[in-house]
């Protein structure tokens, strides 16, 4: 493969990825959403009328429960979403690495990109921080 063909292919790939991929992503939004935030067992929108307690202490407790539930959902979504974000970033870095190589980046530059990818994996996927925590799990 000559260098010019590779450039052409890379340009085509970028075009297809941005245009086609964008449309595809939009179409598959619901599926993607599920992919990103998890398994679909997230609490559905509650349609029945909510009875808000009027007694002050009960109201406080109800609000706290509501908050905790929202927080739990948010944490769960965040946990799933962070994995997906990391995937996207790593994929982007890989493509970047490949394209930069076509452009003519130095070996050192490729190493730097690899190091960045490695740092992301070590931090987000491998949870390196847990080694330094006193064993308190997740």
């Amino acid at each position: 493969m000559t260098t010019s063909t590779m450039y052409a292919l890379a340009a085509a790939a970028v075009l297809i990825l941005t245009a086609g991929g964008g449309v595809g992503l939009a179409v598959l939004f619901r599926l993607t959403n599920q992919l990103v935030v998890g398994d679909g067992r997230l609490p559905r929108v509650v349609l029945e009328r909510v009875v808000v307690p009027t007694e002050p202490m009960a109201l406080l407790r109800w609000r706290r429960e509501q908050d905790e539930e929202r927080m739990a959902v948010a944490r769960r979504v965040a946990a799933y979403r962070s994995g997906a974000t990391v995937l996207v970033v790593l994929a982007a870095l890989t493509v970047f690495e490949y394209v930069m190589n076509l452009v003519g980046i130095s070996v050192f530059g490729l190493f730097v990109i690899a190091l960045v990818k490695a740092a992301i994996i070590v931090h987000y996927f491998m949870h390196v921080a847990t080694v330094f925590a006193a064993g308190d799990g997740h």
Binding site: G83, A84, V86, L87, L90, A91, T94, I121, Y124, F125
Partner: peptide, 11 residues
């Protein structure tokens, strides 16, 4: 790409 995806599914 395949290995990267597998890391995602593992996570």
């Amino acid at each position: 790409t395949v290995l990267l995806l597998s890391s995602f599914t593992m996570n």
